[in-house]
């Protein structure tokens, strides 16, 4: 195990801080006292419904949006262009030169972010390999499929070996295999000690991938912390019952203190009251069918999210 991996697992002081950001566009309040921070080695999932302000918050990091109030700091000082060059950014609206060739373009971005020509070329070739794009190196970006363009876009945020990755919905538009690759790469980066901030609407994926999340709603971070803690901090408990054959769901109606959340052929999910009698439920369930598992668990991240944003 390398030192970087150990570092990645430790808790560090945050390097990037968004501090009390407010921004309005005319009548629209995009950010309202929004604060969050990311530490080296931390992979922070940035969640929120559409229009919550995720993209706006991320754009403030690059000076693309100037907040009306609040500030963005790197190690407690204002961000400068030379610090921004050590950040990798994947904008929500993907942006590359459509007619420029893939390799040439990535080398250009690498150099613009401070690499010299040989290191840029070396890094680009490595990332093209990782993303399985070596044979498209001399294709124009516009000739690539959407998913491959997305890979080039991610490569563009990685070539210069950034200290922080800011990725706006990096998983949108990827096929399941690419999602796995992308997730693996992000995890590797975090393990190397790089701070990763990414937004996503794929909550199950975020739950698997991240230790930490920040949930934003109407421009304000309303919930943030470790995924496990957020889940267990919720007073709600769910009963997940797996059966080995079809189950007649009618028995649930007679159960006190439980309500059906979701029911599939061989799986039932119930929201149970805190004072519910689990033993009684277990025996009721056994009568309805053959049980293969019976688990009491805290809410999933998606359930934490839904109740937090109140929808």
């Amino acid at each position: 195990m390398t030192l970087a991996i150990i570092r990645g697992m430790c808790h560090h002081e945050p390097v990037l801080r968004l501090d009390g950001l407010s921004k309005r566009f005319g009548d629209v309040i995009a950010l309202a006292d929004c604060s969050l921070s990311v530490a080296p080695g931390q992979m922070l999932g940035f969640l929120g419904p559409n229009g919550a302000g995720k993209t706006t918050a991320m754009r403030t990091i690059f000076g693309l949006v100037r907040p009306d109030r609040g500030r963005v700091t790197w190690e407690d000082s204002e961000l400068t262009t030379s610090v921004r060059r050590r950040i990798g950014y994947m904008p929500e609206e993907r942006g590359l030169y459509p007619k420029m060739r893939v390799r040439k373009q990535l080398v250009y971005f690498g150099r613009l972010h401070g690499l010299d020509l040989p290191s840029a070329e070396q890094a680009v070739d490595r990332w093209l390999e990782v993303f399985d794009l070596t044979d498209r190196a001399n294709a124009k970006v516009v000739e690539l499929s959407h998913g491959n363009q997305q890979r080039v876009q991610l490569a563009a945020s990685l070539v210069h070996d950034p200290m922080l990755l800011v990725l706006d919905e990096p998983f949108a538009g990827l096929d399941p295999i690419a999602v796995v690759t992308m997730a693996r790469i992000l995890r590797e980066q975090a393990e190397r000690g790089i701070a990763v901030l990414f937004s996503s609407h794929q909550l199950d994926l975020v739950e698997d991938l991240c230790d930490d999340v920040a949930i934003i709603n109407a421009g304000q971070v309303i919930l943030s912390g470790r995924v496990a803690q957020l889940r267990s901090a919720s007073p709600k408990r769910y009963l997940e019952i797996a059966t080995s054959g079809p189950v007649d769901p009618s028995w649930i109606d007679q159960l006190p203190g439980a309500s059906l959340v979701e029911s599939r052929d061989d799986r039932i999910r119930l929201l149970v009251d805190e004072d519910a009698n689990l033993e009684m439920m277990a025996s009721a369930a056994t009568q309805a069918g053959e049980i293969s598992s019976f688990t009491l668990e805290p809410p999933r991240l998606s359930e934490v999210f839904t109740s937090a944003v109140g929808r």
């Binding site: 754009r59 690059f62 000076g63 693309l64 262009t81 921004r84 060059r85 950040i87 950014y89 904008p91 609206e93 993907r94 942006g95 590359l96 030169y97 459509p98 971005f109 613009l112 972010h113 401070g114 563009a156």
Partner: peptide, 13 residues
């Protein structure tokens, strides 16, 4: 129009 400017502005004033 092709939004590449967002990427550029992170590296060049």
């Amino acid at each position: 129009a092709n939004r590449v400017v967002e990427l550029l502005l992170g590296a060049i004033k």
